[in-house]
Computed example of a mutant assay.
Amino acid sequence: MPVESADELEEILASETIAVVGCSRTPGKAAHDVPKYLLDHGYDVIPVNPHADEIFGRQAADSLAAVEDEIDVVCVFRPSEEVAGIVDAALARDDVDVIWTQQGIRDDQAAARAEAEGRRVVQNRCMKVQHRRLVA
Results as ranks from 00 to 15, higher is better:
75 C>P: 02
116 A>F: 05
76 V>Q: 13
85 G>M: 08
101 T>E: 09
85 G>W: 08
19 A>R: 02
5 S>D: 15
104 G>L: 03
97 D>I: 12
49 N>E: 15
102 Q>L: 09
23 C>P: 04
83 V>K: 01
120 R>K: 15
58 R>M: 12
96 V>Y: 09
112 A>C: 10
46 I>Y: 12
102 Q>S: 04
38 L>R: 05
26 T>Q: 08
27 P>W: 03
38 L>E: 05
62 D>W: 04
52 A>Y: 10
67 V>C: 07
42 G>I: 01
121 V>E: 15
98 V>K: 00
84 A>Q: 13
96 V>W: 07
43 Y>K: 13
33 D>C: 03
16 E>V: 01
132 R>Y: 00
101 T>S: 15
33 D>G: 04
57 G>R: 12
104 G>H: 02
69 D>M: 06
78 R>Q: 11
90 A>H: 14
81 E>F: 13
109 Q>Y: 09
42 G>S: 08
73 V>C: 09
19 A>I: 04
14 A>I: 03
93 R>Q: 09
111 A>W: 13
21 V>T: 05
100 W>C: 01
102 Q>R: 02
99 I>Q: 08
49 N>W: 15
43 Y>W: 12
10 E>R: 15
20 V>C: 10
64 L>S: 12
129 V>T: 06
17 T>D: 03
135 V>Q: 04
9 L>W: 00
5 S>V: 00
131 H>P: 07
60 A>E: 06
17 T>F: 05
6 A>F: 11
1 M>Q: 14
20 V>T: 05
66 A>M: 12
17 T>V: 10
10 E>I: 07
52 A>F: 14
117 E>G: 10
16 E>C: 01
78 R>P: 03
30 A>F: 03
136 A>Y: 02
69 D>N: 11
97 D>F: 06
37 Y>G: 00
60 A>P: 06
110 A>I: 13
40 D>T: 06
109 Q>P: 03
89 A>G: 08
64 L>G: 10
32 H>D: 04
46 I>M: 14
30 A>D: 06
90 A>G: 09
60 A>G: 07
38 L>W: 04
65 A>V: 05
24 S>R: 02
84 A>Y: 13
56 F>D: 09
81 E>W: 13
29 K>E: 08
93 R>F: 13
55 I>K: 07
38 L>C: 05
122 V>M: 01
10 E>M: 11
72 D>R: 08
12 I>W: 05
3 V>W: 13
16 E>L: 02
56 F>M: 14
51 H>V: 12
49 N>M: 15
37 Y>A: 02
42 G>W: 08
15 S>Q: 06
126 C>I: 00
71 I>E: 03
124 N>A: 01
9 L>D: 02
124 N>Q: 07
95 D>K: 01
61 A>I: 07
36 K>G: 03
107 D>W: 09
22 G>L: 05
65 A>C: 05
50 P>G: 07
34 V>E: 04
71 I>L: 13
